[in-house]
Amino acid sequence: MNVFRLAGDMTHLLSIIILLLKIRATKSCTGISLKTQELYVIVFLTRYLDLFTKYISFYNTTMKLVFLGTSISIVWYMRYHKVVKQTYNKDQDTFRHYFLAIPCFLLALLIHHEFTVIEVLWTFSIYLEAVAILPQLVLLQRSRNIDNLTGNYVFLLGAYRALYLVNWVYRYFTENHLVRWIPWLSGLVQTTLYADFFYYYIKSWKNNEKLQLPA
């Protein structure tokens, strides 16, 4: 494992820790899209089916279990915790799941590496992860007030896939020049979706202003 991959994983993990911290410490999930969080549960459930079929490393298994556990607990807090659920911006979080999930599933049926259940579901999870942030970005745009923890959460979540892109370039040149179009292109799309957010995040940070996205 190279340093970019590790940095990417740690950024991803940190983003989730920040989100859980926000929810647990402030007992609030304002500004967080439940739609996006539910899509991440689907992403992890469909991607990590190989937990049962293939052992890669202790690190790999542990991280997979952590991502599954934390994403499920975030959704649990937002849906069922008696205080947290009242802070959920339901009226603004209107993006439809199936607008994203169904096209991704059809695309995975058409474009995949191998036509097996595990491989198609893995491919579906890669496509879905690329666009799963959209409900969150829409919600942020509608929010007049983005708190720091939410802003940092989304920034780290975007930075994670950007670091994976660097990792893939590094692996291409240091390993056997293997081409992996499905994750590469999806990861590129995923990172591009954050471009606008990154711009305003960095601008607000430089000017020491509160983060706000133009409507």
């Binding site: 190989d50 293939k54 997979k64 992996r180």
Partner: peptide, 10 residues
């Protein structure tokens, strides 16, 4: 072009 199916990433 070779395509890789190794899933050692997260």
């Amino acid at each position: 072009l070779q395509q890789d199916s190794v899933k050692d990433e997260l």
